[in-house]
Design a protein around this nucleic acid. Structure first.
Length: 352
DNA sequence: AAGCCGGGGTA
DNA sequence: TACCCAGGCTT
């Protein structure tokens, strides 16, 4: 397939983007540094997460872990605690693990070559391109949701493939200031070429934009319908002892991996909960009063968690099984553990 | 290629 | 309510 943009067209788009970005760029914390660690951190936090959401997390995280070494040597629990509420927690676990690898294999310096970068957990094609272009000024393309939308509208082709998008982004970034060019593309998508009601009248690429010419730029790119979150029920138990609460660590893999929660099981059966608790910790219990229900909607799951009191009934008959971690926590310990939004709702319920 | 993985801002 | 966000990983 031939390239979709002629060289003169490419140069025109590049020039207009760079000029627009020079006067329209937002003053964001991560734009005040070329430190590869800081660029990496910001790009990781920004994955599927809005700029306004990230800013306070980015500041706090850097206060706690100001450089790659401090992150590599940190406790994973502390890293997850800093990430608490930001979501997609595998990002935090991967970032911490990757920092360890960089410290061990690259002397603590973030590598600039695509092979080394791409082999780090949590760094895919986009983040690799962002670090290479923004931190190391290499002409490496990025295609995120913003770039995809800008290019899809600019060309207004129905079946624009991912391959072609990366190809186009690669042609555009070739030249001077790859860092500014990539950020200009993303900034335009975030502030002007927005998903709904794009501000075409102020867009530097208005002239020559096929999407704007159709009168319906919102139709690009074509969006796939997302199935509604599936409704599921679960049962959790509040088990207290001498002013403390039993919390358990979720497995590292999967939903809310590494975060802490009250003992919980899928379904609605108290017998299952009691049995699971005995299996995992050896603690005997029986279900008591109902405390209420907490509803929490994830991207693809609509969870209703019923919460009941548990009362101690019998001692440890066997040792805790597998890698299950359980802790009796006072309020001070609870404040130190990473908890999901769902679990914060549960603890509110339990306090009343 | 498609599903899983959070949480929140916005219309 | 529904969409979608500076994506990556797994199957």
């Amino acid at each position: 397939m031939p390239p979709r943009l002629s060289r003169p067209r490419r140069e025109s788009v590049r020039r207009r983007l760079l000029e627009w970005y020079g006067k329209s760029r937002r003053d964001l914390p991560w734009r005040r540094s070329d430190d590869p660690y800081r660029i990496w951190l910001s790009e990781t936090m920004l994955q599927q997460t809005r700029v306004e959401t990230v800013v306070p997390y980015y500041r706090r995280f850097l206060e706690r872990f100001p450089d790659l070494r401090s992150l590599a040597l940190a406790d994973e629990q502390d890293v997850l605690k800093q990430w608490e509420g930001l979501g997609y927690y595998s990002r935090a676990r991967n970032l911490k693990r990757a920092a360890e690898m960089v410290l061990r294999d690259h002397g603590g310096r973030v590598p600039s070559d695509p092979e080394a970068l791409g082999s780090l957990p949590g760094i895919g094609r986009y983040t690799s391109g962002a670090i290479r272009s923004i931190a190391f000024k290499q002409p490496a393309p990025v295609v995120d949701g913003n770039v995809k939308r800008v290019l899809a509208r600019l060309l207004a082709e129905p079946g624009l493939s991912e391959t072609r998008l990366w190809e186009l982004a690669g042609q555009l970034v070739e030249g001077e200031h790859p860092d500014l060019l990539n950020q200009a593309l993303m900034e335009l998508g975030a502030t002007v070429c927005v998903p709904r009601n794009p501000l075409c009248s102020t867009c530097p690429l208005r002239r020559g934009c096929a999407g704007a010419a159709t009168g319906r730029p919102e139709d690009f790119p074509a969006r796939a319908p997302r199935p509604p979150p599936r409704a599921v029920r679960a049962l959790g138990g509040i088990l207290r002892s001498r002013g403390r609460l039993l919390l358990m660590r979720r497995p590292s893999r999967g939903l809310l991996g590494g975060l802490w929660e009250i003992p919980s099981v899928p379904g609605d059966d108290p017998g299952t909960l009691v049995e699971a608790l005995r299996e995992r910790t050896g603690l005997g219990s029986r279900a008591g009063a109902a405390l209420g229900e907490v509803r929490h909607v994830f991207t693809h799951r609509d969870l209703t968690l019923r919460v009941v009191e548990l009362e101690r009934d019998g001692g440890r008959k066997r040792a805790p099984a597998g890698d299950a971690e359980a802790l009796w926590c006072g309020s001070a310990e609870i404040a130190r553990l990473p908890l999901s939004r769902l679990m914060h709702k549960v603890l509110e319920l339990a306090e009343r």
